[in-house]
C-alpha cells in the first residue's frame, strides 16, 4: 500500500494525467515528471454485486472520483464515503483506491 496515487505531470504545461500518456493531450509535449495526488471527491458510486465466473464474490464498491489535481479516475472504495465526500487516495501496485479521510 502506497499513500496517494501516482500521476504524470507534463513538464511544459503542468497538466497532470492518469493513466500514463505518451504525449501530453493538451500541448503534445513528450516529457513528464511523476507526482502524487492524495485527495479526491467522490462523484458516482457503484456496488459490484456479480462478477462473471466468480462463485463466492463479495460485493465491493467502486467510485468515479475527481482528484484534488483534477484527474477523473476510477477507484476501489473502502469505508463508507458517499457522493460529495472527500476521500484519501492510496495505491495497491498500479490500482487506485480511496478510503474515508481520517
Amino acid at each position: 500500500m502506497t499513500p496517494g496515487v501516482g500521476i504524470w505531470r507534463c513538464t511544459k504545461c503542468r497538466t497532470g494525467f492518469f493513466p500514463q500518456p505518451l504525449l501530453c493531450a493538451r500541448c503534445h509535449n513528450d516529457r513528464f515528471e511523476t507526482d502524487r495526488v492524495h485527495d479526491a471527491v467522490v462523484e458516482e458510486i457503484s456496488v459490484i454485486r456479480h462478477m462473471l465466473g466468480q462463485e463466492n464474490w463479495q460485493p465491493r464498491r467502486i467510485a468515479s472520483v475527481r482528484t484534488s489535481d483534477g484527474q477523473l479516475i476510477t477507484v476501489g472504495l473502502t469505508g463508507e464515503a458517499g457522493p460529495g465526500a472527500t476521500i484519501e487516495l492510496y495505491q495497491e501496485e498500479n490500482a487506485p483506491f480511496g478510503r474515508d479521510k481520517t
Binding site: P19, E44, M51, I62, T74, A95
Partner: peptide, 17 residues
C-alpha cells in the same frame, strides 16, 4: 492495470458509473 484489480466488474462497472 488500473481497473481489473479493483474488481470493477468489466464493462458493467464502467457503465454503472
Amino acid at each position: 492495470e488500473h481497473l481489473a484489480p479493483l474488481g470493477h466488474g468489466g464493462p458493467n462497472g464502467v457503465y454503472a458509473l
